[in-house]
Design a protein around this nucleic acid. Structure first.
Lengths: 192, 192
DNA sequence: ATTGAACCGGAGGCTCACCTCCGCTAATCT
DNA sequence: AGATTAGCGGAGGTGAGCCTCCGGTTCAAT
């Protein structure tokens, strides 16, 4: 009952079984991700429905609340991050960690909207997602720490907040973002 | 004519001369800073007027546009940052730089709202503010670089974007924010 | 092919923020 | 004190987004 549910299962449970309904569900998720990335947390729901080529009624049937929509979008991305982490398991520890963080940055535009919307209050689903994301990244971090590539006096929480900060700032070009991220990541290496 | 105007002058020019009007002007600025920090870029203007204990008409008379209000709030804070930088001129270079950046972080909640509102487009006033802020911080950075306390391959722009990222993330407590900021700032020191 | 359940779309009622406009108030000047 | 006029506040028109509801449509199971 209070057994933690995997993020994937949570999503599968939401998705309608009928073919047209499932298509619309997916279209809404995609449209919502774009809209949130573009306009932030309070993107217009009617605009999202329009982008998805779907009536506003359909949106509300699938996601009774703006928050339900958030949760689904967020769960989707977190799920991806978990898969990416697994795929990096055999790379050298520092490379694996930074590669995963780069991927994390890609998701951060959406995350920005989510964060805006959450300011403080925490839903069960969000906590589960957060936890799932931490579970995905932590092995990468700990491996790097055991190799001596990362300082021992920091944890996943510190790291993700730092990176998500840099990810949420607007940069004139992605090259500069990469440079700044690299500088900040220099800070997580041990001092000789 | 196209001589750059100081941020302070810009503000003084806006402020009405009559006593009651000036009071209202100040109250609106304060209320706006709070509201933007709390609710982000699209805080309700009517709410701002209410907080300031002022009619909505008064708000619009002083700030015909949401953007005008942004600009005034932003200019106010930038002005402060300049004064802080000047006050730090005689401290050791690394300390002065980090102290200034800490102060910068304090302003970032408001800045977050500003950034949201700006996404791309740049007003003349905003450019002036930005420039003024860079002018304030750059001497601190360059001094630290000449002392060998900061790596030479980065500039003010890199630094401020990094710090403003960390500043705009929500932290459970300020201690953790300070920790993460310190870690990131470790990244700007030269590698031996 | 038929049928019934699931699903669709968008009209419409509602709320709320935006912004204008103007009769009244009170600060400043003489 | 009295005149002048900048400044005040909020009523109310406008538009946008929220959300409900239901007649019509489409899927899928028989």
């Amino acid at each position: 009952m209070s057994e933690p549910i995997s993020v994937g299962e949570f999503l599968a449970a939401q998705r309608p079984r009928r073919a047209d309904a499932a298509r619309n569900f997916d279209a809404l998720l995609t449209a919502a991700r774009e809209a949130f990335a573009e306009h932030g947390a309070e993107a217009s729901l009617e605009d999202i429905a329009r982008r998805a080529g779907v009536g506003i009624g359909t949106l509300y049937r699938n996601f009774p609340t703006r928050r339900h929509l958030f949760e689904a979008v967020y769960a989707n991305e977190v799920d991806d991050l978990g898969r990416v982490a697994a795929a990096l398991a055999d790379r050298p520890s520092w490379d694996a960690l930074t590669a995963w963080l780069s991927r994390f940055v890609d998701y951060a535009m959406t995350k920005r909207a989510i964060r805006e919307a959450l300011q403080g209050e925490e839903t069960a689903v969000f906590l589960a997602c957060r936890r799932s994301m931490y579970d995905a990244g932590t092995p990468l971090l700990e491996r790097a720490q055991q190799d001596g590539a990362v300082r021992a006096d920091m944890d996943m929480d510190d790291l993700l907040r730092m990176v998500s900060g840099i990810a949420s700032v607007a940069f004139p070009d992605e090259a500069q973002r990469a440079k700044v991220l690299a500088i900040a990541l220099d800070g997580i290496r041990p001092r000789p």
